[in-house]
Design a protein around this nucleic acid. Sequence first.
DNA 1: AATAGAAGTCAACATGTGTTTACATTTTGC
DNA 2: GCAAAATGTAAACACATGTTGACTTCTATT
Lengths: 187, 187
Amino acid sequence: MADEKTTKITVPRSQKALKTRDSILTNARIAFTSVGYARAGLREIAGNVGVNPALILRYFGSKEELFRSALETVVNVHRMIDCERDRFGAHMADLLNVSAADALPMMLLSLSEPAAREVSQSALQERIVDPLAAWLGPPDAEARATEIVMLSMGYVLYSRMLRLRASGDKAIDQWLAEALQQIADRQ
Amino acid sequence: MADEKTTKITVPRSQKALKTRDSILTNARIAFTSVGYARAGLREIAGNVGVNPALILRYFGSKEELFRSALETVVNVHRMIDCERDRFGAHMADLLNVSAADALPMMLLSLSEPAAREVSQSALQERIVDPLAAWLGPPDAEARATEIVMLSMGYVLYSRMLRLRASGDKAIDQWLAEALQQIADRQ
DNA sequence: AATAGAAGTCAACATGTGTTTACATTTTGC
DNA sequence: GCAAAATGTAAACACATGTTGACTTCTATT
């Protein structure tokens, strides 16, 4: 049992090859973020990169692995907690309104695909909830982190994906910021 | 211009035919709720009803119309506002934990399909947000109704679709109930 | 009983998908 | 400069999908 599972994945060695691999990753992220896992076709991603679809599979093995790699480049907690504790609510509310927060649309549009859902779930737990809980600290760190994520998902759904009539209402943004701050301040 | 758009849709006349049409609708709702629009195949729905796929299109015209019909049977505000005003938070929190609230998973799993998303968006606005706002009353009725929907979507995502580690935490359910109640009480 | 129309079946079409295999081209190490 | 490996292409495979039109079976009315 030396070679567990001989895949055909190739790690790029030349600078140029690394550039195209990165370009694939970038375009994949854009595609997944705008139309979700199922509707993002390898042919279209490859076309936008100017490359053959088969090359994607040589670098990433499968569409599912491509999604996992693309998601990992975009899910991280750093920008969320890059602020003073007493400004966390307003900071998060701002963040959710800029396209920097691409991870959530990417995950929310890919919920129906079981593979993509599993990837999203573990990425969200390990790369957002857990570090956020550590940053918040006791009491009930994990519960409060989960509440923050919950609220964020609801907000992104409302403001960017479902576009309900109230979308853009400043009063709602204000409410969101206060609700988030309350969770962060709770003790 | 007498016959606008001669579709081939048939309205069932016999009792038996109406039963099968209802059965199609029921099974469609179950399929859409559990795997979303894209992964719910007409062949599988028809198979579960014990009927031919072509019959579905004779009764509903297209998959998109089937989704619209199925969603309408399940999206309504009645159970949400069937309680005393001062118990709204706890009532909603309970409701979101029983499978009665099937509408949200059905919509959330179908976000990536543009057709299904549009149907969901208008159903949510017209059949939930608007009547809920009317029930809540001033001030800021629509904003508060939207906040309630936002929170509900986030909660369902957390507890039933993404299944984060904290899923089932009673403290979070408690927090949700209180947050919802605060929105309802605000003035 | 005959017959029109509804209720339902059947097989094919058109299209799109991720993936694979075989092949060509370029780069790199010796 | 040559050979081998890396980089990339081309075309087909295998499969699944919504949809269509022609066909059969049943039922109800005359």
